[in-house]
Simulated assay, not measured.
Amino acid sequence: MVICDVPRPRNANATRQAILQAARERFCSESYDDVGMRDIARDVGVDAALISRYFGSKEDLFVAVLDSCKNGRDLMDGPREDFGQRLAREIVYGEAAACAPDDGSGRMRGLLILLRSIGSSKAMDVVQHTTNSRFFEPLTQWIGGEDAPVRARLAAGLIMGMAISRELSDGFSNLDEAQKASLAGRMADALQGLVDG
């Protein structure tokens, strides 16, 4: 996976951003343990020592990647009354691809990175802390109300479960369009019900 085929001018900020983008793509498609600093360096066309100079350890790079992704608050962007529909369409149809560039799409990218790396003992502390601060807490605050923590966990479980299901079934390729529409509709109703209480 080569990010750039043309020589890049010497620009520390541009090189740092290219490393971050390559690392995002790697962590989005591979687990934490499977991503190597040398692989990222090769993707960008730099020496692995440069990555260490800019970011420190692999764990520090992982944290920087998560910080560069949109956080859980972005899932709540838009009218509250169509939250379920927006998220269901994004998950079922991939209307904002999980690893898309930061152009307003890709709101699920950080979540996908967390899910891919949750099995890593090295990444587990980062994943647990990041999941709470970037996903559960913002969702709980946005839902509001006395039982918001319970509704937020149920909604998060549905979102994460369906995101995993999408990955395991290659974008729900085994469903026809009518089945996808039914899946999106049922998921939208369930999510909206949890948000509305």
Rank of each mutant, 00 (worst) to 15 (best):
P7W: 04
R8N: 09
R8W: 11
P9L: 15
R10T: 12
R10V: 10
R10H: 13
N11A: 05
N11E: 06
R16H: 12
Q17M: 12
A18P: 03
I19P: 02
Q21H: 03
A22E: 05
A22R: 03
E25G: 11
R26Y: 14
F27E: 06
C28R: 01
D33R: 08
D34M: 07
V35R: 00
M37G: 06
R38E: 06
D39N: 11
D43P: 03
D43N: 09
V44T: 04
V44R: 04
G45P: 11
G45H: 04
G45F: 02
V46R: 10
D47A: 15
A48M: 11
A49M: 14
L50W: 02
S52H: 14
R53D: 08
Y54D: 04
G56L: 02
G56S: 08
S57P: 12
K58L: 04
K58C: 09
L61P: 00
F62T: 12
F62D: 08
N71R: 14
L75T: 02
M76W: 08
M76C: 12
G78N: 07
R80G: 01
D82I: 01
F83G: 01
F83M: 14
G84H: 03
R86G: 00
A88P: 03
R89P: 06
R89W: 15
E90R: 08
I91G: 10
V92N: 09
G94D: 12
G94K: 14
A96E: 09
A97E: 13
A97G: 11
C99V: 13
D102A: 11
D103L: 11
D103H: 10
S105H: 08
S105F: 02
S105D: 11
M108P: 01
G110S: 11
L111I: 12
L112M: 14
I113W: 02
L115S: 06
I118P: 00
S120K: 04
S121H: 14
K122V: 13
K122G: 10
M124N: 11
D125E: 15
Q128I: 13
Q128R: 14
T130Y: 09
T131S: 02
S133L: 08
F135L: 09
P138T: 06
T140N: 09
Q141M: 09
W142C: 04
G144F: 03
G145K: 15
G145C: 13
G145R: 15
G145N: 14
E146Y: 06
D147I: 09
A148W: 10
R151Y: 00
A152Q: 00
R153I: 06
L154E: 12
L154I: 15
A155T: 00
I159L: 03
M160F: 10
M162N: 10
M162R: 07
I164L: 15
I164K: 13
S165Q: 14
R166W: 08
E167F: 12
D170G: 06
G171I: 00
G171D: 05
F172A: 02
N174R: 15
N174L: 15
L175Q: 10
L175K: 13
D176A: 03
Q179V: 04
A181V: 15
A181Q: 13
G185R: 04
G185I: 03
M187L: 15
A188P: 04
A190H: 02
L191K: 04
D196S: 09
D196Y: 09
